[in-house]
Every structure is written in structure tokens, then in C-alpha cells.
Design a protein around this nucleic acid. Structure first.
Lengths: 251, 251
DNA sequence: CTCTCTTCACGTTCATGCACGTTTCGATCA
DNA sequence: TGATCGAAACGTGCATGAACGTGAAGAGAG
């Protein structure tokens, strides 16, 4: 990737997220923080962003003090996504579920990480097209509007032909008694099929999902390898842990 | 290959990929990096591209990266897209090819038009998720980075199971003698398969495509029902018309 | 032979990562 | 409240390798 190209990407990201974090960008772009800082410095010198401690913000919307910026810090989904990304090893075949958290995973995949991503989400596939090394395997079928993923017989059939090392699963409810749940029956079935194709399944559960229950059961807690969450140690987390899965905290 | 010819190729490649990498081009064209660099230097001097360390990018910053190009289509593509949209009737099953022009079609679909859209492009599928009435059928398979569409055996197989009323085809070259051409062999084959599944095939050809020739043949002009273009009446248009297809002008 | 295009050789510039000393920030303590 | 301390972020200088431009030499077409 060219320098000019990279800076273009940074500006684009700045507009989308409202801020740039040097450390995260370094990991994501697969280069040292020094180089990222150099980019930010040059962009700031060109008047395209404003440099702040830890990263950069848009010129117009510069926040007064550091603590106020802390408030806009990576929201919980970003944190969970960043931690989940670290579960992926070079060469892995990874199934990415649909949803905003897994989309964040796709966007934070380091650019020097060569993996095969299998997904039934056109949104995730589209987000990964720009990645230089990732090979994308798209599972086709009828696209359900509810959460913008392909579901149904054709998709299940396509899923049956593949295997993977890892499945990053998104759900809307994670409950010690009711297990993993989501809002659509067809999607729940799809998630089960995908889980059956991967050696390990990890649930991405930002803190608001814990304790929540949705109408349709996906899997029991015992059926997954682990749960990635940004919740802190405590009784709710312990309850989940007793049900079987490894609890991976972002803390 | 003549120098002028090679530079034509470079420009074409630049428009397709959004960037040129000196090293890759040297290997691909079978000559030294020196010569490639000289070409890039001359093209930049003529204002046809912008030189960067490692290669070259388009002059306009709007064209600098593919994602930006997806956001703002030139007027010509929008005109063609708008006219092509009028070929679609309520209840139709429509195959949408990948590419910026067909993406513009997806975006301009009236929100009260109920159709089934079949596509092998995750980008187009993602763009249609917000549409209230469209039913999306996604063709899966390995996603080719070149133009961000699914191709290959699995995709062909999926395509064989469907039929459609209409196929809106995007190509990079429309030429009276050389027919319809595109920049990738695999994609060319994919487009042929899709054409075979639809009752009618219409080519979307904004004016800069007319008279252009790319390396890989898709179909003969006689194999398609019509060509939608924003070119004006004249000898070039007449030449195409004599080859068989109906010419639909936006003018 | 002449002209053009190409490659090769050379010294130069550029991008990057590392090392080191400095600054900034939040937390802790008086 | 104000002072102090450690960690993180920062800037600078430097080394390295890649990419670059220039000029000379070689190859091929007319």
C-alpha cells in the first residue's frame, strides 16, 4: 500500500469514526506506531486533521481536553472486536457471522494477516474487499433483511461444503439459563449450522448482551468454546463461566 | 507491444484498479522497472496520473481509492443507470452484474418497486439491504478482489440453479468488431454464465466504454438484447446497432 | 547509419523501524 | 488542593533497504 493511499484511508476512517487512535491503526495497518504518528503529523501539518495525545481528531471537532476524548473512546463493540481479532491466527479459515460487532472485527483485521474469511454477510464481504491478503468465501442464498445475511436452504447447503478453524458468532442474548439467543428463527438455525462447521466457536458479546434473552435459541452455552466480552469479573461472568465456555475479558 | 499501446493499457488498468504498482507492472509486462517508471513519469507529466512512491494513483482525489469511487459515480454512469432502471418491471427477477454502473442501478431503484435482485456482488447486495421491497438472492463463492464479485466453480453452480427475466451486464469495452470485453478471464466466464440464465441481457455502457477493447471477450454484440448508453446518435452508435442489439440512448 | 526504446550502473532520495531522551497524562499521596 | 511518580505517547536521530532519477551503453527497426 502506498503512503498516499494509506493517508487517504486514514482520512476516510477519521470521517467515519470521528477520531484516529495511533496504537490501533498501527496494529491494523501492520506497521509501527512511529510510522502512523508520522502520517498523523503530516496530515495535521497539511491541515487535514488535528493532532491530539494518542491520535488525531477532525479539524473542526477538536475536543478541549483529554478526559473528554476518553469519553468517546472505543465503544464496547470495538473493544470486543479487537480482542476477538487476536483469536485469529495466520492461515486460519474463519467464519464471520453477520452483525455490527463482527463487522468491526472485519475492519480491524491487521492488513498483514493472511486468512480465509467465510461469511454469509454481504456487508462483511464488501468491507473485506479492500483487504490485501484476506481470501473471501461468500455463502450465497436469499438475503434476509432482518440482519442482512444470507439464510435458508441454499445457504445451509453452501455451508455444508466448507469447514473452518474458527467461528466468531454474534447473538443478541447471552444468558446463564437460556443460553445464546437471537431475534429470528431462520438466523438462529443458520448460526447453528455455521457453528457445526467450525472446530471452535467464540461468541462476541458486548456487555449489554449479557443477561439478555431473545426469542429464538441458538445454542447452549456449553456448545461454544468461549465468550469474548468487555464486561468485568463478577457474579454474572462467573455464572456464564460455570456453564462451560471460557470467558475472555477485554479488561 | 508499442509504447503508446502499453501506456493505454496502464491508464486502463489505473482506472480499473485505482492504482498502479511499478514492481508488479514490470513483472506483468515483462520489462524492467526502469521502463515502467519512465512510463509512469511521462503519464504523470502529461497530467494523466499522479506519481507516488512505489507506483501511481489517479489524478483526481475522488478517484484515489475504490471506495470513494463507489460513493460518487460520474454523471454519465448515473444517466445510464437511471435509463437501465426503467427496463425493470415490477415482479421481475433481475440479475445485477458487479461494477460501479450496476451499483448505481441498485441505488436508484425506486423504493416502491418490488423485484427480485440476483447478484454475485456483495457490494450490490449490501447496498440493497436497505431497500424495503427488493428480495435479494446472493450468489456465493470465492470473491475476486479485482472487481469485488464472486466467481469460480461454486458461483457458476449457484447461477445454474436460477433463472431471470433480465440481466444488466457491465463490461469495460464495447467494440463493433471485438464485441463485449472485460479485464479478467474468470469474470468474463462468469458474465457469460449469468447471461445464459436470463431471458434478456442489456449492456450498461457509459460513453467511455464505447470503442474500448479489454483483453477478455465476454460475448458478441449479437448475443445481447440491447445496449444502454449515454452516447449520442452517430456513426459509432450505428456501427453497434448494425451488429444486432437495440441501442437505448439516454439523450 | 540513425533514431528510439530499453537495460544497466551509479549515486540519491524516501519510507520505515529502532533506540533514546522528553513530554504528557492520570493516579497516588500528603 | 497541590506535589510527585510511573506509564504511555511523543519527537528526533540514525541505520537499512527499497524505490528513484540520471546518464551511458546496448538492441532493434527503418
Amino acid at each position: 500500500m502506498f503512503v498516499a493511499e494509506r493517508r487517504e484511508l486514514l482520512l476516510q476512517r477519521l470521517q467515519a469514526d470521528g477520531k484516529l487512535v495511533a496504537r490501533d491503526l498501527a496494529v491494523e495497518l501492520g506497521l509501527s506506531e512511529d510510522s502512523v504518528r508520522r502520517d498523523l503529523r503530516d496530515l495535521a501539518a497539511a491541515g487535514l486533521c488535528q493532532r491530539v495525545y494518542g491520535g488525531a481528531v477532525p479539524v473542526s471537532r477538536a475536543l478541549a481536553d483529554y478526559s473528554a476524548r476518553r469519553a468517546v473512546e472505543p465503544d464496547s463493540k470495538r473493544r470486543v472486536a479487537a480482542r476477538a481479532t487476536r483469536l485469529i491466527r495466520a492461515g486460519d479459515r474463519v467464519i464471520l457471522d453477520g452483525g455490527t460487532t463482527t463487522l468491526a472485527v472485519a475492519r480491524t483485521l491487521p492488513r498483514d494477516l493472511a486468512v480465509t474469511v467465510i461469511t454469509h454477510s454481504p456487508t462483511i464481504a464488501a468491507a473485506l474487499v479492500d483487504h490485501p491478503l484476506v481470501e473471501i468465501l461468500l455463502l450465497g442464498g436469499r438475503v434476509y433483511k432482518h440482519s442482512a445475511v444470507a439464510c435458508g436452504a441454499a445457504t445451509v447447503e453452501a455451508a455444508q461444503t466448507i469447514t473452518a478453524d474458527l467461528f466468531l458468532l454474534g447473538v443478541t442474548g447471552v444468558h446463564a439459563d437460556h443460553g445464546l439467543t437471537t431475534g429470528d428463527a431462520e438466523e438462529a438455525a443458520m448460526k447453528r449450522v455455521l457453528a457445526s462447521r467450525a472446530a471452535d466457536t467464540y461468541v462476541l458479546a458486548s456487555v449489554e448482551k449479557l443477561g439478555a434473552v431473545s426469542p429464538y435459541k441458538v445454542l447452549d452455552l456449553g456448545a461454544v468454546t468461549g465468550i469474548v466480552t468487555d464486561a468485568f469479573e463478577g457474579e454474572p461472568v462467573d455464572q456464564l463461566r460455570r456453564a462451560g465456555p471460557e470467558l475472555i475479558l477485554t479488561g
